[in-house]
Simulated assay, not measured.
Amino acid sequence: MSDPLEAGPLESGPEVADDTRPPHAGPLSQISAALVALAVGVAGAIGSVALGLGRMTQPGPGLWPFAISVVIVVLSAVLVVTGRKLEDTERFSKASLLTAAGLVTLILLAWLLPLIGFEIPSLLLVFVWLRWLGRESWRTSIVVSVLTVAAFYLLFVVLLQVPLPRLI
């Protein structure tokens, strides 16, 4: 009986993956994506300062969002400078619509959260992501959605007593 480890060289990952990847979008797309991320980082930093940074001994609510925003700004600036040489952006395709759908559902979650609490929007978000974005079965999508929201409810509302907007 032969040893499967000695069967010969395996195909390398990148060559196989290149056949299925959409074509490279080009340096303009790379720079544009970096500029969008840079704008998001700057907006986050401005919003964080408005929340209040506090002091090192007594951090304010905006300190961590500010720190993360600064990291986003720095990394985005690096991408703006080096982006022309990179080839990891992909042209928009049908798969890009899934990412857009995910973003739209997150925006809907943020909009609905203060209006009707976190339970229903979170349940719908997890369900939509599993069923339509992840192509899971109806049963799996329903069960995992309910269990996920129940776990978050127990963790944040019951155990940590975080004041989330909620129906229950």
Rank of each mutant, 00 (worst) to 15 (best):
F66G: 10
T57K: 09
P14L: 08
P121F: 05
K85L: 12
V158A: 10
R139W: 14
I142P: 01
I142A: 13
F118N: 05
T82G: 12
V80G: 03
R139C: 11
L123K: 06
G8T: 05
T89E: 01
L123P: 05
R166F: 05
H24C: 10
H24A: 08
G83N: 04
S96T: 09
R131A: 06
L53G: 00
F127S: 01
Q58T: 15
L63T: 02
L133I: 13
S145M: 11
V16Q: 14
S48F: 04
L123C: 02
E119I: 13
V104G: 01
E11R: 15
A50K: 10
T99M: 10
S32L: 15
L130G: 03
I68T: 12
L75Y: 11
W64F: 15
A43S: 11
L86G: 11
L167H: 02
L109W: 12
V36W: 09
P27Q: 11
P121D: 04
V158L: 12
L10W: 10
G26H: 05
K85F: 13
L147Y: 07
R139M: 12
I168H: 03
S2V: 15
Q161V: 11
P23V: 00
G83K: 02
I107H: 07
P14A: 09
D18M: 13
T140L: 15
V143T: 12
I31A: 02
A77D: 06
S96L: 03
R84P: 01
P27M: 09
V128R: 02
V42A: 07
P121N: 00
V80C: 11
V70S: 02
L123S: 03
V144G: 04
F152G: 13
L125H: 00
G117F: 07
A150M: 10
E87C: 09
G134M: 12
L125N: 00
S48W: 04
L28M: 12
V143E: 11
S145C: 01
P121G: 07
S141V: 04
S137F: 12
R84A: 14
T89S: 13
A34C: 12
R131C: 01
A110Y: 10
V158M: 08
Q161R: 15
L108W: 03
D88I: 15
D18I: 07
P27R: 13
I168S: 01
I31V: 15
S96F: 08
P114R: 03
S145G: 02
A37E: 08
V49R: 05
W132Y: 15
T57H: 10
L103G: 00
G117M: 06
R55Y: 08
F66R: 04
P23T: 11
T99Q: 05
I68M: 12
L155I: 06
G62K: 02
W129T: 14
W129V: 13
T82I: 02
P27S: 14
L115I: 14
L167S: 06
P165D: 05
G134F: 14
L124N: 07
L133T: 02
F92A: 05
Q30P: 04
L5P: 01
L98G: 02
V158K: 12
G26A: 08
A100I: 15
Q30A: 15
L164G: 04
V71S: 07
I116C: 08
P9A: 11
F66M: 09
